[in-house]
Design a protein around this nucleic acid. Structure first.
Lengths: 327, 327
DNA sequence: CTGTTAGCGCTTTCAC
DNA sequence: GTGAAAGCGCTAACAG
């Protein structure tokens, strides 16, 4: 009943009656091993509750023991975004099951060296780049190829995982059109963020199909910017009857800005967001939006690098319209 | 200019003209070393840009390479709480500077074995227990003593870091009293969570001093519970003129529940929360609350275990009243 | 105070 | 297919 020293590979080998080398081959799944050896080792592993020592393995394979999450942005404040918190929480949970840790890093936009500097520190098992730009992805060192994925746009050698914001945006904007709105404005994400482009294209397309004129205002995913954007939109196009923001946070800001202007929502102007964050249901009026399965995306991304999956070049996760009161 | 193999301790020793053992002593700061040796090694470290290999060090010291964040709760859903995301984000950032990773674990309430199971996995460098109960803290294995801290209540051998919710609650409730409220209800945190007790005591004290009767309803830090609690409070004590919730999320739910009942805020009933989350300023009416410096707390906790600080038994971080529209 | 000597637990040639 | 042997980079006794 006393907690004995945790089993080592030597113990497993001894118990299975094979050499440590053979036990290693079986455990890692690399290299040849007879059916017989395989079975005996597997049995011993189960019996002893053997778990490989990550540090020892990392030491010899130089493969690292840490999953780094690197978030690109203008300032280190991007790390405070609740979105990053959700990605990190999920990744840390997935990593924990494999006895690996996660670290968080800010990658300054337009600092090509920063990714390389991060990557050549030892101890890096894998890398998830959040919100990358295409140039940034070019700076991924070769020795990390195969252990890097992106959440956002990808690149050759860097598989990507992201929400299907094209279809999601289509769903939201079509809903707006279906409910009689025609003069629909959009608050986008930051201009440098390429993964928002798909959504803007979708917005333009739906507007084009329904005979509307695009009214695009740049955003930055913050609520403050949303409030300001609302004022800009109403000043520039006073007859606007709907605002779609590519982020719930921004949409909540729009709600605020419109309220300050004395504009009724959804009476005068409908408002819709994107993400379906926890607070979307708590605003007044409750926010109509489209889901963003952050946890699913982060799980897939973390698993891909930790398990060295060969996923496709780009994986998109569906977004679902959630109609509440604001549109 | 080509990135050469990153320097090893042997390289440092050679460059400094000392043995590897001496170099190790200087680098770790453990064990004796002459002034001369210290200087030469330090110079070599700087010149070569030497960074110790965490895996190798962990292997020999059996000290682990991972900082585990363990959150206690009824279900694994506690991991989804934005609060946990903020703690984790901060810890991962602090850990990243030291080349260590962070992993996230759920510790079921009333499962005494779970902490021990977590702790005897190899590779554990340190442990931060979030929202612990006192019995849970008793199960911390001896071999981890000195590398465990708590966010919430602590114990002997487990230093704690937490917001000063006693003073914070006093501030909020006194504000309520000062603005003419007398029949003040409180929605608490979960009953099993001991660190909320200080706040309840403070609430009772202020009420006692101002001649009010306590009206306490148990909460669980969720918005859904807040809405329900609002209904319960107004049914049980219809003349209630203020509600204080020990969590902004819950307070937002109270706002919602009151709205559904047709109760005006702050006209009929004032509402105040605790935490000052990002959305506190975006609700309608904007939420009056008291700050919770989660990032500061998590930074201190992570540093304490990573740097083996000897902090005091309990450290409290001040909370500051933020008056908005709801109270 | 310093250097020599053993390993930590694991993977990986390289002969057999 | 399998085992013996050689380390990965580091710390910790233990003599000097």
């Amino acid at each position: 009943m006393t907690a004995e020293r945790t089993a080592t590979l030597d113990d497993v080998a001894k118990a299975a009656g094979v050499s440590r080398a053979t036990a290693s081959r079986v455990v890692t799944g690399q290299g040849p091993a007879s059916r017989h050896a395989r079975d005996r080792v597997a049995a011993a592993v189960a019996a002893l509750g053997y778990v490989p020592d990550a540090a020892a393995r990392a030491l010899v394979t130089r493969t690292g023991t840490r999953l780094a999450i690197a978030v690109i942005g203008h300032t280190a404040a991007v790390l405070d975004d609740p979105y990053v918190g959700r990605v990190l929480t999920t990744a840390a949970h997935v990593a924990a099951e494999r006895e690996v840790g996660v670290s968080l890093h800010w990658l300054p936009l337009n600092d090509p060296g920063s990714l390389a500097r991060l990557a050549d520190g030892r101890g890096l098992g894998g890398l998830v780049v959040v919100n990358p730009t295409r140039p940034a992805l070019e700076t991924v060192p070769r020795n990390l190829r195969g252990r890097v994925v992106a959440i956002g746009v990808g690149a050759r050698d860097v598989p990507s995982f992201d929400v299907d914001n094209r279809a999601g945006t289509e769903g939201v904007v079509r809903h707006l059109v279906r409910t009689g709105r025609r003069r629909i404005a959009m608050v986008t994400g930051p201009a440098w963020l390429p993964c928002g482009d798909r959504a803007v294209e979708a917005y333009r397309q739906v507007l084009h199909d329904s005979g509307g004129e695009p009214r695009v205002v740049p955003g930055d995913f913050t609520a403050v910017r949303g409030a300001r954007a609302a004022a800009e939109i109403m000043a520039r196009w006073p007859d606007t009857d709907a605002v779609f923001a590519l982020s719930d946070l921004t949409a909540l800001g729009v709600l605020d800005g419109l309220h300050a202007l004395g504009v009724q929502v959804p009476g005068d102007v409908a408002v819709a967001g994107f993400d379906d964050i926890a607070f979307a249901g708590l605003s007044r009026p409750a926010l109509t939006t489209s889901t963003h399965p952050v946890e699913e995306i982060a799980t897939a991304a973390a698993q891909a690098v930790l398990d060295r999956h060969n996923t496709g070049r780009a994986t998109f996760f569906p977004s679902r319209l959630v109609v509440r009161d604001s549109a």
